[in-house]
Design a protein around this nucleic acid. Structure first.
Lengths: 108, 108
DNA sequence: ACATGGAGTAAGCGTTGACTTACCGTAAGC
DNA sequence: GCTTACGGTAAGTCAACGCTTACTCCATGT
């Protein structure tokens, strides 16, 4: 239902960097923002998008908010891609190496 | 090297529609444009992007240009996603259901 | 209670990018 | 040859979006 959102989210480089940094483990917003070339509010906004796309979850840990990867959105994306992959491979076999313009050829 | 481009490409709804229509088989630009809510030049531009991302290939068939899905870009995307997926699942197990704010709780 | 730090929200700005119309090259048919 | 269909390119427009600064809320510590 929302692989569209996941794609949309992961298309942005900054958002991807945030997401990839979460791969090492859960991190707070401040920690995520530190080392990125954008301000902390920007990171907050990106995290909001990622959350809506089902790509991350968060829990509050005292005053901090800790984010971590949610396999949900990633799974949807994967399913969509896999289903595509199968069809694509099969269709590709029928189309491989059909020469360009079999009708007429330029003669210099 | 270019899963970034693939993501960027597939994030656009129109481009996705074009790409998904190619799943049924190779199609010319005109056929692709017909039935889409955008003009034919727009489709041309999208196809250019898709091609640069390694998501489609084209061959000329007389006066027509026929596009079809190229598994190359799809494969890169899939590899990136899969590698992510494994890490994400494992990391997720350690983080499931940690309650919010174990320290202090609101009492109404 | 007050001060501090961590994080989400609002408003505004600037850029990116998806779309349009108009134009140009090229291949097929008369 | 000329004409017609097909498709890529150019230039310009407008909305979407990523970022910033400012403000506010909440949780902790002294």
């Amino acid at each position: 239902m929302s692989y569209e959102r996941a794609l949309q989210c992961l298309s942005d480089p900054t958002r991807r960097r945030i997401f990839e940094r979460l791969r090492a483990g859960p991190k707070s917003v401040g920690v995520l923002a530190h080392g990125l070339p954008v301000s902390r509010p920007a990171v907050s906004q990106h995290l909001k998008s990622l959350k809506q796309a089902g790509l991350v979850k968060d829990r509050s840990e005292g005053a901090r908010r800790v984010y971590y990867i949610d396999p949900e959105g990633l799974g949807e994306l994967r399913r969509w891609l896999d289903q595509f992959w199968d069809d694509a491979l099969e269709a590709f076999k029928n189309e491989v190496e059909i020469p360009n313009t079999p009708s007429r050829r330029k003669k210099p």
